[in-house]
Protein backbone atom coordinates (compact mmCIF):
# COMPACT_ATOMS: atom_id res chain seq x y z
CA UNK A 1 0.00 0.00 0.00
CA UNK A 2 1.27 3.48 -0.84
CA UNK A 3 1.73 6.10 1.82
CA UNK A 4 -0.65 9.06 1.76
CA UNK A 5 1.78 11.16 3.76
CA UNK A 6 5.50 10.78 4.02
CA UNK A 7 7.73 13.09 6.06
CA UNK A 8 11.52 13.13 6.39
CA UNK A 9 13.26 15.47 8.81
CA UNK A 10 10.44 17.97 8.68
CA UNK A 11 10.93 20.90 11.06
CA UNK A 12 9.02 24.03 11.90
CA UNK A 13 10.17 26.89 14.11
CA UNK A 14 8.28 29.83 15.51
CA UNK A 15 10.95 32.38 16.23
CA UNK A 16 13.71 30.48 18.00
CA UNK A 17 11.34 27.86 19.36
CA UNK A 18 11.22 24.57 17.52
CA UNK A 19 7.67 23.27 17.53
CA UNK A 20 8.07 20.39 15.12
CA UNK A 21 10.91 18.03 14.30
CA UNK A 22 9.77 14.81 12.69
CA UNK A 23 12.57 12.58 11.41
CA UNK A 24 10.29 10.12 9.71
CA UNK A 25 6.58 9.51 9.48
CA UNK A 26 4.34 7.62 7.09
CA UNK A 27 0.59 7.46 7.05
CA UNK A 28 -1.06 4.89 4.83
CA UNK A 29 -4.45 5.00 3.20
CA UNK A 30 -7.62 3.57 4.59
CA UNK A 31 -7.20 3.60 8.38
CA UNK A 32 -7.88 5.78 11.35
CA UNK A 33 -4.72 7.29 12.81
CA UNK A 34 -4.48 9.02 16.11
CA UNK A 35 -1.99 11.67 17.16
CA UNK A 36 -1.63 11.85 20.92
CA UNK A 37 0.51 13.97 23.15
CA UNK A 38 0.49 16.61 25.84
CA UNK A 39 -0.41 20.23 25.09
CA UNK A 40 2.21 22.03 23.05
CA UNK A 41 3.82 18.85 21.80
CA UNK A 42 3.28 19.86 18.17
CA UNK A 43 0.19 17.80 17.27
CA UNK A 44 -1.72 20.62 15.63
CA UNK A 45 1.40 21.89 13.85
CA UNK A 46 1.98 18.43 12.43
CA UNK A 47 -1.62 18.30 11.25
CA UNK A 48 -1.36 21.76 9.71
CA UNK A 49 1.83 20.83 7.88
CA UNK A 50 0.43 17.67 6.35
CA UNK A 51 -2.84 19.43 5.49
CA UNK A 52 -0.70 22.07 3.72
CA UNK A 53 -1.91 24.96 5.91
CA UNK A 54 1.50 25.64 7.45
CA UNK A 55 4.76 25.78 5.54
CA UNK A 56 7.50 23.58 6.97
CA UNK A 57 10.95 25.11 7.37
CA UNK A 58 13.11 22.19 6.32
CA UNK A 59 12.71 18.55 5.29
CA UNK A 60 10.94 16.56 2.66
CA UNK A 61 7.18 16.32 2.54
CA UNK A 62 5.07 14.07 0.34
CA UNK A 63 1.31 14.33 0.31
CA UNK A 64 -0.96 11.98 -1.65
CA UNK A 65 2.07 10.74 -3.50
CA UNK A 66 3.31 14.15 -4.61
CA UNK A 67 6.40 15.96 -3.49
CA UNK A 68 5.21 19.29 -2.14
CA UNK A 69 6.57 22.43 -3.78
CA UNK A 70 3.84 24.74 -2.38
CA UNK A 71 2.73 25.96 -5.81
CA UNK A 72 -0.83 27.33 -5.48
CA UNK A 73 -2.15 25.00 -8.16
CA UNK A 74 -0.67 21.98 -6.38
CA UNK A 75 -2.05 23.11 -3.03
CA UNK A 76 -5.51 23.53 -4.51
CA UNK A 77 -5.44 20.14 -6.25
CA UNK A 78 -4.29 18.31 -3.13
CA UNK A 79 -6.44 20.18 -0.65
CA UNK A 80 -9.48 19.34 -2.71
CA UNK A 81 -8.91 15.73 -1.76
CA UNK A 82 -8.83 16.52 1.95
CA UNK A 83 -11.10 18.05 4.52
CA UNK A 84 -10.71 19.20 8.11
CA UNK A 85 -12.78 19.59 11.24
CA UNK A 86 -11.28 21.48 14.18
CA UNK A 87 -12.23 21.58 17.82
CA UNK A 88 -14.49 24.61 17.46
CA UNK A 89 -15.27 24.71 13.80
CA UNK A 90 -15.70 28.09 12.21
CA UNK A 91 -19.18 28.52 10.82
CA UNK A 92 -19.63 30.96 7.97
CA UNK A 93 -22.23 33.64 8.41
CA UNK A 94 -25.31 32.04 6.88
CA UNK A 95 -27.50 28.98 6.97
CA UNK A 96 -26.42 25.42 7.59
CA UNK A 97 -27.11 24.86 3.90
CA UNK A 98 -24.72 27.64 2.92
CA UNK A 99 -22.00 26.14 5.08
CA UNK A 100 -22.34 22.59 3.84
CA UNK A 101 -22.67 23.70 0.22
CA UNK A 102 -19.55 25.90 0.46
CA UNK A 103 -16.98 23.32 -0.64
CA UNK A 104 -19.19 22.06 -3.46
CA UNK A 105 -19.82 25.53 -4.76
CA UNK A 106 -16.10 26.28 -4.63
CA UNK A 107 -15.68 23.30 -6.95
CA UNK A 108 -18.35 24.67 -9.29
CA UNK A 109 -20.54 21.64 -8.76
CA UNK A 110 -23.89 21.87 -10.59
CA UNK A 111 -26.66 23.30 -8.41
CA UNK A 112 -28.78 20.12 -8.42
CA UNK A 113 -25.89 17.98 -7.30
CA UNK A 114 -25.03 20.50 -4.58
CA UNK A 115 -28.53 20.22 -3.17
CA UNK A 116 -28.46 16.47 -3.29
CA UNK A 117 -25.04 16.20 -1.67
CA UNK A 118 -25.86 18.65 1.09
CA UNK A 119 -29.01 16.78 1.97
CA UNK A 120 -27.24 13.47 1.87
CA UNK A 121 -24.44 14.45 4.20
CA UNK A 122 -26.71 16.32 6.61
CA UNK A 123 -29.00 13.30 6.66
CA UNK A 124 -26.07 11.03 7.48
CA UNK A 125 -25.32 13.13 10.56
CA UNK A 126 -28.97 13.48 11.50
CA UNK A 127 -28.90 17.23 10.93
CA UNK A 128 -31.28 17.48 7.99
CA UNK A 129 -33.89 19.31 10.04
CA UNK A 130 -31.46 22.16 10.58
CA UNK A 131 -30.79 22.78 6.90
CA UNK A 132 -32.16 26.32 6.89
CA UNK A 133 -31.10 27.16 10.41
CA UNK A 134 -28.50 29.91 10.98
CA UNK A 135 -25.25 28.00 11.49
CA UNK A 136 -23.92 30.29 14.18
CA UNK A 137 -26.92 29.72 16.40
CA UNK A 138 -26.33 25.98 16.68
CA UNK A 139 -25.05 24.41 19.87
CA UNK A 140 -21.45 23.18 20.07
CA UNK A 141 -22.35 19.56 19.32
CA UNK A 142 -24.62 20.51 16.46
CA UNK A 143 -21.91 22.75 15.02
CA UNK A 144 -19.44 19.88 15.07
CA UNK A 145 -21.90 17.63 13.25
CA UNK A 146 -22.48 20.32 10.63
CA UNK A 147 -18.73 20.72 10.31
CA UNK A 148 -18.37 17.00 9.70
CA UNK A 149 -21.23 17.07 7.18
CA UNK A 150 -19.56 20.04 5.50
CA UNK A 151 -16.31 18.09 5.26
CA UNK A 152 -18.01 14.90 4.02
CA UNK A 153 -20.00 16.71 1.34
CA UNK A 154 -16.84 17.13 -0.74
CA UNK A 155 -16.00 13.38 -0.62
CA UNK A 156 -12.47 13.71 0.76
CA UNK A 157 -9.86 10.97 0.54
CA UNK A 158 -8.46 12.16 3.86
CA UNK A 159 -10.32 13.69 6.77
CA UNK A 160 -8.37 15.58 9.44
CA UNK A 161 -10.00 15.88 12.84
CA UNK A 162 -8.36 18.18 15.37
CA UNK A 163 -9.90 17.35 18.75
CA UNK A 164 -13.40 17.22 17.26
CA UNK A 165 -15.05 16.25 20.53
CA UNK A 166 -13.12 18.24 23.09
CA UNK A 167 -15.72 21.00 23.42
CA UNK A 168 -18.86 18.94 23.51
CA UNK A 169 -20.77 16.78 25.92
CA UNK A 170 -20.14 13.01 26.31
CA UNK A 171 -23.27 11.83 24.53
CA UNK A 172 -22.56 13.96 21.48
CA UNK A 173 -18.98 12.74 21.64
CA UNK A 174 -20.07 9.16 21.46
CA UNK A 175 -22.34 9.99 18.56
CA UNK A 176 -19.52 11.68 16.69
CA UNK A 177 -17.15 8.79 17.37
CA UNK A 178 -19.73 6.52 15.78
CA UNK A 179 -19.82 8.71 12.68
CA UNK A 180 -16.04 8.74 12.47
CA UNK A 181 -15.95 4.98 12.47
CA UNK A 182 -18.79 4.80 9.97
CA UNK A 183 -17.13 7.25 7.58
CA UNK A 184 -13.90 5.30 7.70
CA UNK A 185 -15.57 1.98 7.08
CA UNK A 186 -18.23 2.92 4.54
CA UNK A 187 -16.39 5.61 2.55
CA UNK A 188 -12.89 4.19 2.93
CA UNK A 189 -11.84 7.67 4.06
CA UNK A 190 -8.48 7.85 5.77
CA UNK A 191 -8.86 9.70 9.05
CA UNK A 192 -6.15 11.49 10.99
CA UNK A 193 -7.41 12.34 14.45
CA UNK A 194 -5.86 14.45 17.18
CA UNK A 195 -7.33 13.72 20.54
CA UNK A 196 -6.72 14.14 24.22
CA UNK A 197 -8.98 11.30 25.13
CA UNK A 198 -7.04 8.07 25.51
CA UNK A 199 -10.13 5.89 25.40
CA UNK A 200 -11.13 7.53 22.12
CA UNK A 201 -7.79 6.70 20.58
CA UNK A 202 -8.01 3.18 21.88
CA UNK A 203 -11.53 2.78 20.55
CA UNK A 204 -10.99 4.26 17.08
CA UNK A 205 -7.40 4.20 15.95
CA UNK A 206 -5.57 1.43 14.19
CA UNK A 207 -2.25 3.17 14.56
CA UNK A 208 -1.16 5.97 16.80
CA UNK A 209 1.68 8.45 17.16
CA UNK A 210 2.76 9.83 20.46
CA UNK A 211 4.25 13.29 20.20
CA UNK A 212 6.62 14.90 22.63
CA UNK A 213 8.31 18.27 22.29
CA UNK A 214 7.82 18.34 18.54
CA UNK A 215 9.18 14.84 18.07
CA UNK A 216 7.40 11.60 17.40
CA UNK A 217 8.24 9.68 20.50
CA UNK A 218 6.62 6.45 19.59
CA UNK A 219 4.62 5.16 16.68
CA UNK A 220 2.85 1.87 16.19
CA UNK A 221 -0.29 -0.21 16.36
CA UNK A 222 -2.64 1.15 19.00
CA UNK A 223 -2.91 -2.16 20.75
CA UNK A 224 0.87 -2.64 20.97
CA UNK A 225 1.41 0.88 22.21
CA UNK A 226 -1.11 0.58 24.99
CA UNK A 227 0.12 -2.84 26.05
CA UNK A 228 3.80 -2.45 25.69
CA UNK A 229 5.05 1.11 25.42
CA UNK A 230 8.81 1.32 24.85
CA UNK A 231 9.53 4.81 26.14
CA UNK A 232 9.01 5.54 29.83
CA UNK A 233 7.40 8.87 28.91
CA UNK A 234 4.87 7.05 26.71
CA UNK A 235 4.09 4.74 29.57
CA UNK A 236 3.48 7.63 31.91
CA UNK A 237 1.39 9.52 29.37
CA UNK A 238 -0.80 6.52 28.60
CA UNK A 239 -1.32 5.98 32.29
CA UNK A 240 -2.64 9.48 32.42
CA UNK A 241 0.21 10.87 34.44
CA UNK A 242 0.75 13.85 32.12
Amino acid sequence: MTALFRLFNVTKNYGDRQVLNVEHLEIEAGHIYCILGPNGSGKTTLLRVISLLTLNDTGKLEVLGEHINWAPSQLLRLRRQMAMVTQSSYMFEGSVYYNVAYGLKARKTPEREVKFKVQESLDLLGMLDFINYPARKLSGGEKQKVAIARALAVNPRVLFLDEPTSNIDPSSSVEIERYIKYINEEHATTIVLITHKLFQARKLAKEMFLMWDGHILEWGQTRDLFHDPQDPRTRKFLKGEY
Binding site: S51, L76, R79, R80, Y90, Y102, G103, A106
Partner: peptide, 13 residues
Protein backbone atom coordinates in the same frame (compact mmCIF):
# COMPACT_ATOMS: atom_id res chain seq x y z
CA UNK B 1 -9.39 30.11 10.81
CA UNK B 2 -11.77 31.76 8.33
CA UNK B 3 -9.20 31.50 5.58
CA UNK B 4 -8.14 28.02 6.69
CA UNK B 5 -11.72 26.79 6.76
CA UNK B 6 -12.34 28.01 3.21
CA UNK B 7 -9.20 26.60 1.66
CA UNK B 8 -9.63 23.29 3.45
CA UNK B 9 -13.08 23.11 1.88
CA UNK B 10 -11.40 23.44 -1.50
CA UNK B 11 -11.71 27.17 -2.13
CA UNK B 12 -9.18 28.78 -4.43
CA UNK B 13 -7.19 31.66 -3.00
Amino acid sequence: EVYDTSVMLGATR
